[in-house]
Write a protein that binds this DNA or RNA. Structure first.
Lengths: 228, 228
DNA sequence: GATATTATGGCAGTCGCTGACACTTGACAA
DNA sequence: TTGTCAAGTGTCAGCGACTGCCATAATATC
C-alpha cells in the first residue's frame, strides 16, 4: 500500500522468464547506480550513465524508477521495509516503545543478507553516507522516513487497539522514537566504524537516553529514569 | 551560519538604494511565487511564470533563490528562524524541554506580523498545506527542519553547558521534541481550522502526551505523568 | 563627472523527466 | 509450431529546472 513496500520487499518468487528478466534488469540498475554514485557522487552521476552501465536506455530506467533518487534509496528502502515487518512480527505483549526498540534491533539481523543479495554491504554503507551528505538525497530520504512513520504509527495503533486518527499517542511515540533513530543513524554515519555492532550499541544507548533527556533537570551524568 | 538564517532573518535595515531595491525584488519574487503556487500548485507553476510575475528574468530569479523549492519555503523558513531566536531568548533557568515548549509557543506570537509583512497569513497557510501535500516540497521542508534541529540542539547544549558532540542528550531531546512538533503541524494542517489558536492548543496537548506515550503501558485515557 | 562595482538580461547548453510511437520479445492457445 | 496478444524496450521530440558566459545597465565611490 504505502510506497515503502514496493522496494523488492514483496518476496514474490519470480516465476516466468519475463519476471526474472525484469528483476535482473532492476537489480542491475540498482547495482550500477550505487556503484557509480559511491564512486562519483550523486550529482556527478547522470541517469544516462546509470542506464548505460546497466545496458538499457534512459527511457527504460525511468520505467523502473520514478526518478534518480529512487534508485539511490532503493536498498535503504528495503531496510526500512524490513523494520516495519519486524515490528509486525513482535509479540503482542510488548509495550509500544519496547516493541519499536526490539523491532529495530531485530531487523538489523536479517537485513544483512537481504542487502548483500543485492549489493556488497560496504557499498551500501558508502551510499548511506552519501545520502546523509547529499542535500537532495537526504531530503528524499527524510520524506520516505516520514512515510514509514505513518506505517509504524498505524501498526502501533493496531497493536494497542486504538485509532490513530483519534488518539495521538501512537504518532507521538513513533515521532519521538524516529527522531532518536535518525540521530542514531546520523552519528553512526559520521563515525568511522561502519559496522553493525556499533550501530546496535549506539541505538541501545540512545534509546536509553530518551527518558533522561526528557526529564526536567539533567544531572551531569546519566540521569533520571522515567519508567514508572 | 546555518542556511536557516538567510531567510530575511537578518534584520539588517536596508541602507543604500541598491539594497532596498534588492529586498523589494526578493519580496516581489516571494509574493508572486506563493500566489502562483497557492493557485496552481507547486509543480504546476514554472519558474518562468514566477519571474515574469515579478518582472524579472528567469536568470535573475536564480540569483535570488538557489532553486524553486527555496522560494516556496521562504516564509516557512522565516518562521523557523523565529523559533530558534525564541529559544535563544528563553531565560537560563528553564529546563530544556520547557524551554523548547515555551519557545514554540512564544514564537507563534511575533511571527504573525513578521509573516504578514511579506504575505497575507491565509496565503501562507494555504502554501503550508501545499508543502505538506507536495512530495518534493515536503522533502525539502523536512531537510531544512533537520538543519534547524542541529541549531536547536546546539543551543540546548549551550544552555546546559555541555558539548553536543560528547553528550547525546541535547540531540535526542530535540529529535523527540521536533518529531512531536512535526505531528502537531501535520495534524493542524489536515484539520480545517487554520488559526493560530488551534495550533497552540494542539501543540500544548501533544507535548503533554509525550510522557504518557513513552510510558511502558498505555492506560486507555490520558496516562502516566512522567515528570519526576 | 569619470571610474569601479554590482545587478540584470539574453543565450546556449546540460540534465532530469515525460508522452507518443514503432518494434521486439515472451506468454498462451489453437 | 504457429499465430495472436500482451508486455518490455528503444528512439525521438520536447518541457522545465538550472548554470556558465558575456554584454549591458544601473548604483556606488571618489
Amino acid at each position: 500500500m504505502h510506497a515503502i513496500e514496493g522496494a523488492t520487499g514483496d518476496a514474490a518468487p519470480p516465476s516466468g522468464l519475463r519476471e526474472r528478466k525484469k528483476a535482473r534488469t532492476r537489480d542491475a540498475l540498482i547495482r550500477s547506480a550505487l556503484e557509480l554514485i559511491a564512486h562519483k557522487g550523486y550529482e556527478g552521476t547522470t541517469v544516462d550513465e546509470i542506464a548505460a552501465a546497466a545496458d538499457v536506455s534512459q527511457r527504460t530506467f525511468f520505467r523502473y524508477f520514478a526518478n534518480k533518487e529512487e534508485v539511490a534509496l532503493a536498498v535503504q528502502n528495503m531496510v526500512e521495509a524490513q523494520f516495519l515487518a519486524a515490528l509486525r512480527a513482535r509479540p503482542a505483549g510488548e509495550p509500544p516503545l519496547t516493541a519499536l526498540r526490539n523491532a529495530a534491533l531485530a531487523s538489523w539481523d536479517g537485513v544483512g543478507e537481504a542487502v548483500t543479495a543485492l549489493v556488497p554491504i560496504d557499498l551500501h554503507v558508502r551510499v548511506y553516507r552519501m545520502i546523509e551528505s547529499t542535500p537532495q538525497l537526504l531530503a528524499a530520504h527524510l520524506r520516505r522516513l516520514a512515510e514509514l512513520e505513518e506505517g509504524l504509527a498505524e501498526e502501533i495503533g493496531r497493536r494497542e487497539g486504538l485509532d490513530v486518527r483519534t488518539d495521538p499517542r501512537p504518532r507521538i511515540l513513533v515521532a519521538a522514537f524516529s527522531g532518536v533513530m535518525r540521530v542514531t543513524g546520523k552519528v553512526w554515519g559520521e563515525n568511522l566504524d561502519g559496522d553493525m555492532a556499533s550501530l546496535r550499541r549506539i541505538t541501545s544507548e540512545y534509546l536509553d537516553q530518551i527518558g533522561p533527556a526528557l526529564a526536567e533537570e539533567w544531572s551531569k551524568y546519566g540521569g533520571v529514569d522515567q519508567k514508572a
